[in-house]
Nucleic acid binder design. Structure first.
Lengths: 256, 256
DNA sequence: AAGTGGTCTAGACCACCAT
DNA sequence: TGGTGGTCTAGACCACTTA
């Protein structure tokens, strides 16, 4: 068979295909779509590469190239001999990919989260811009204090669109068995796949100073994170204030 | 030919090969080695994939898999129709991969570097640990102020091992035509391939406050970066203090 | 033993660039 | 036109897991 003909054939068959897009990109799009549609649930195995290559009428190598990219984006996880799995949000994943604070000696304890408040409100300019919603749209605002090895180190303010998390309750948030992103995934079907963070140094205002037990005006590290799901759609806007007296933020770029 | 036999054959032929290491990893090692040995200079094209696959007696697909990884690590750069090139340090690369400060409006001007001092000294505990050298070993220490759009925003202190940069002079550093990493590469054959950064918020001490024109005790963002060459060997330790009043550090993880 | 992902081969054709 | 990287195919065998 002529590979070019095959390419064109499928390009025509696949709805929404970009013109001249490589076949493996189309396959990747179909895989992503199938995951988003819920046909394969987080934590479960997708069909084998041989089965999928038959289903999409492509060679195994082409299928593998599509899966390769999704594995790199941490949407899929390969395990030799076992299968390929839709990645689920658990504590390990959160710690590895979304929690960038460690003790100055390099030790990286998991944080204890204590919820301070859970409120509804209307998006201000910044929330609207970061979440891609309209000013005045309804949002949930959750405030937390995170402790590392018993010490209160981080003050977190989370903003999420009510439309994306319909019916979320304070109890649901407070009593979640695992991480916050696990809650988003398991209860609302929203998978956070990556985040973008911007950092600056600020002075502690009186309330936060008391909360974190630092001097008023002490320098704190402010992290503003937008968490994104598929297609870079924003899901959560989070402002964190970190006491970096004995802790630090690490950024190990370009390795993973 | 039996691919397994071929694998074993080459595994035996290749000096320094790890046991049971895939063939493409060996090819990758040979490519890296050849670059480090200087057979292919930064900015120049390496032989074509077909030529290299013949040279290493592997299929083109295997050669490509090795090159794929080096491209991802930004050691090689592919250009369709032109060839594959050993990546050279230029201003664009520095801005994209090693300079993470931008204006709060998202604009990202290139910094002007003004050298304040160039001294020799002996490594203290921290320098020794970060640079992988002995306490008391000779180091160069260079202090710079970086301006963005005319405003002094960053105070930089660089420490490098004298042994790695023999005969470096202040003039060489001050009059370099391009970036600092370009100087390391072109004059000393040292290519920085990635960096690891740790951040915290600190108070401006009086000297730095004057230098950056901020209030004494104002919060500054401290960045401690270790720049690494091949095999994660440390090359440079840099402490930066950033005025984040109107600028911010960005960390767009997991995209590239 | 059967099934999965991981490696490797060999070769075709396409897209792009320089000449 | 000739050379380069980019895509795709088809199939073999290896490494690993599970039952």
């Amino acid at each position: 068979m002529n590979p070019a003909d095959d390419h064109n054939l499928h390009a025509r068959l696949m709805a929404g295909a970009a013109p001249d897009s490589p076949l493996y990109k189309e396959v990747k799009r179909l895989l992503t779509q199938t995951i988003q549609a819920g046909e394969w649930k987080p934590g479960t195995a997708i069909p084998s590469e041989r089965q999928l290559s038959a289903r999409f009428h492509v060679a195994v190598g082409t299928l593998r190239k599509a899966v390769d990219e999704l594995v790199q984006e941490r949407i899929l996880i390969r395990q030799q001999g076992r299968g390929t799995f839709v990645s689920a949000h658990n504590r390990d994943r959160m710690m590895f990919h979304f929690f960038h604070i460690q003790r100055e000696d390099g030790d990286k304890p998991a944080p204890d989260v204590e919820m301070l408040s859970f409120k509804t409100g209307r998006a201000d300019d910044e929330e609207a811009a970061r979440l891609g919603i309209g000013v005045g749209d309804r949002v949930f605002r959750i405030a937390n204090v995170l402790s590392l090895a018993g010490d209160r180190i981080i003050f977190d303010r989370i903003s999420i669109a009510k439309a994306l998390f319909p019916g979320m309750t304070a109890a649901q948030f407070k009593n979640r068995p695992s991480t916050i992103y696990h809650l988003y995934q398991s209860a609302f079907g929203i998978t956070v796949v990556r985040s973008a963070e911007r950092l600056r140094a600020v002075r502690a205002d009186p309330e936060v100073a008391q909360l974190l037990d630092v001097a008023k005006g002490a320098p704190l590290l402010e992290i503003r994170r937008v968490a994104l799901t598929f297609h870079d759609q924003p899901v959560e806007y989070r402002r964190s204030l970190v006491d970096t007296e004995h802790h630090e933020y690490f950024s190990d770029l370009a390795k993973s």
